[in-house]
């Protein structure tokens, strides 16, 4: 067993996923610390005790950031998974349910892409009366398109591939063709697409919350933290904006990285390396 690139990748993959899981769990367990105000420790710059400093209400920014990231990851998990399922359903429907459905879904994609994402998220959030529900529905409605296109292309290609046609001619049942011949090709694509949805979902959640359309100000979300920080930047509390932002970017990079690695591991074309 020599160490080749793929084995090294697997180790990194496991590390990255466990790191994200740790943040997720830490955030859930630690909500109280994130909300606790203590006016004896207001506006403290980063120190060993409070690595990310404290805010004007004496809240521990490290705990708040972790809680915010955990919230981001949870919303990411929920929305990316459902978006990917929507993409899978619509993409394969476009490929197998005939021309009318295909054209309809094509129009739907163009329609959603025609409104700038942030604006559409704002509209949907507005329609839902803002808050958690608005964000989730908004992200679900705006993140399925590119994966749906990929799935559609893949299914079309599979439908025309020699072995599926032969299997059909040999009288193999439809269900069996789907489960034995098509799903094994689609699942890796689906998984990679799902993971790569995370970064977008997380960034959009933070953005829309930042604008005031997302999670409510009482919740320790990264968007809320950063939005509040603007007022205190002028008084010199730079740490309120810097660390939460870096942390969120780090999470996004990690997801991107995991997606990239998963793609390399699952993609047959990368076998020739």
């Amino acid at each position: 067993m020599s160490i080749n690139r793929r084995k090294a990748m697997l180790v990194l993959l496991v590390l990255a996923v466990s790191f994200l899981l740790c943040i997720l769990i830490a955030g859930v367990l630690n909500t109280d610390a994130a909300m606790k105000t203590d006016f004896t420790r207001k506006n403290q710059p980063p120190s060993l005790r409070y690595p990310f400093g404290t805010d004007w209400m004496g809240r521990d920014m490290f705990a708040r950031t972790i809680a915010g990231l955990s919230m981001s990851i949870r919303i990411g998990l929920l929305t990316a998974t459902i978006s990917a399922l929507i993409a899978f359903a619509l993409g394969s429907a476009a490929a197998v349910m005939g021309k009318t459905v295909d054209i309809f879904i094509g129009w739907l994609i163009d329609l959603v892409m025609g409104i700038p994402h942030i604006l559409l998220l704002m509209l949907i959030s507005f329609a839902c009366g803002k808050g958690f529900r608005g964000i989730v529905i908004g992200i679900l409605c705006t993140h399925w398109m590119s994966l749906a296109r990929v799935i559609r292309g893949e299914v079309l290609q599979l439908k025309q591939s020699g072995y599926v046609q032969v299997a059909a001619k040999l009288g193999t049942g439809r269900l069996r063709i789907v489960t034995r011949h098509m799903l094994p090709h689609l699942v890796p694509q689906f998984m990679v697409g799902l993971i790569l949805l995370f970064p977008h979902a997380i960034l959009h959640e933070a953005s829309i919350t930042f604008l005031g359309f997302g999670l409510s100000p009482e919740q320790p979300a990264i968007g809320v933290i950063l939005s509040e920080s603007i007022r205190y930047l002028l008084t010199g509390s730079w740490w309120l904006a810097v660390f939460p932002g870096i942390s969120l970017s780090l999470i996004v990079i990690l997801f991107d990285y995991i997606g990239g690695m998963a793609r390399k591991l699952l993609d047959p074309a990368s076998a020739h390396e």
């Binding site: 960034l203 933070a206 953005s207 950063l226 603007i230 932002g245 970017s249 990079i253």
Partner: peptide, 10 residues
């Protein structure tokens, strides 16, 4: 990977 609004804040 960095949120647009955060870069703007920076």
């Amino acid at each position: 990977s960095a949120p647009t609004f955060w870069l703007a804040l920076l």
